[in-house]
């Protein structure tokens, strides 16, 4: 290969003067081309208009996409918001996302996004499963909480889920305690104001003001360690209901009594429940005479009791166990 630079002469050969073009051919060419160019030019305004609309559509699409993106980011942030605000007590001590835990010597008062106040007892593990504005669901893995829920709007729910039950608020101050752990845990629900429903093993029971569910001697004392909630505007209690002892709750879907009717029979039903619960408790601990006495009292005082069938069955069973 040589080191010459032939490009200069080569390009010069391309750039040399050209022979004059044939005038007739040029004229013929212009006659062929010009009509088509004129037609092309006539279409330019329409084409520009189309382009403009296309550009506008692209811009509009971009704006919409940006808004959607911004909304998604906002939603993600909202969903990622800490569901609890610590009003009193130590900061969250749980490794769990959206969780809160207290040490053996600590308690706290939290406020949820919706404004429910949650008094957390020592040695309690709590987390938020859902912080949806209309459906707040807390999970109580261990320990005890006392909750004051503001008046719920239409369709709104507030619930506390334990390993063995779901306590749904119908308004307003209640405590939930988990005793034991895992499969052997038991949930005690005590209601101070209003009404809550307790769902367990597919069955649902309503627990009204001043009533407790599954709170045995040891369990009942648990909420005592829960810090007292500050006074709040008096919540509107919902319908009162009769708590049923474990294994004797009405089937799911059973309608609760209306407010007026329930109020009229509230004391009676509560008393019947207490008698049946006391009888069953006495049977469990082997005090069969006491159990039979309670059952007889129930059947004697309340011959039309809805618990009659169960009471009679229990009486037969207890009688067989008598020495």
């Amino acid at each position: 290969m040589t080191n010459e630079q032939p490009s200069k002469s080569a390009l010069a050969s391309l750039g040399g003067p050209l022979a004059v073009a044939d005038a007739a051919a040029r004229e013929r060419r212009s006659r062929e081309i010009l009509p088509q160019l004129r037609q092309l030019v006539r279409g330019i305004p329409a084409r520009r208009q189309r382009k403009m609309w296309q550009r506008r559509a692209v811009v509009a699409g971009g704006v919409i996409a940006s808004c959607a993106l911004a909304a998604s980011v906002w939603l993600m942030r909202v969903r990622d918001t800490d569901p609890f605000e610590v009003e009193q007590g130590p900061a969250a001590q749980s490794d769990e996302r959206h969780g809160y835990a207290t040490a053996a010597d600590a308690s706290a008062i939290l406020r949820t996004l919706r404004g429910a106040q949650v008094a957390v007892s020592p040695s309690t593990r709590l987390s938020a499963i859902s912080s949806d504005p209309h459906h707040e669901l807390l999970q109580l893995a261990a320990g005890s909480v006392r909750v004051r829920v503001p008046k719920l709007g239409t369709g709104a729910t507030f619930a506390v889920q334990t390993p063995d039950a779901i306590v749904t608020v119908h308004g307003t101050v209640f405590s939930v305690t988990v005793v034991g752990a895992g499969a052997i845990s038991q949930t005690c629900v005590a209601v101070s104001e209003g009404l809550v429903s307790v769902e367990r093993a597919g069955k649902r029971a309503l627990v009204g003001a001043g009533e407790q569910l599954n709170c045995q001697a040891k369990v009942v004392s648990a909420p005592a360690a829960t810090p007292a909630l500050p006074p709040a505007v008096a919540p509107t209690p919902s319908v009162s209901a009769t708590p049923l002892p474990r294994d004797h709750r009405p089937a799911s879907g059973q309608r609760p009594p209306s407010a007026s009717a329930a109020r009229a029979t509230d004391a009676s039903l509560a008393a019947q429940n207490r008698l049946l619960a006391a009888a069953l408790q006495a049977e469990r601990v082997g005090q069969f005479y006491d159990a039979r006495s309670q059952l007889l009292e129930l059947l004697g005082r309340y011959p039309d009791s809805p618990l009659r069938t169960e009471a009679e069955r229990s009486l037969a069973r207890v009688s067989r166990k008598l020495p």
């Binding site: 073009a21 040029r26 212009s30 010009l34 160019l37 004129r38 092309l40 030019v41 279409g43 330019i44």
Partner: peptide
Amino acid sequence: GLGAGQEWAADALYERVHDVVEQ
């Protein structure tokens, strides 16, 4: 004129640059 869709602009453009294009 081209932007406005005027036919004379096509003629003017052709007349202005056709020799450059051909060469």
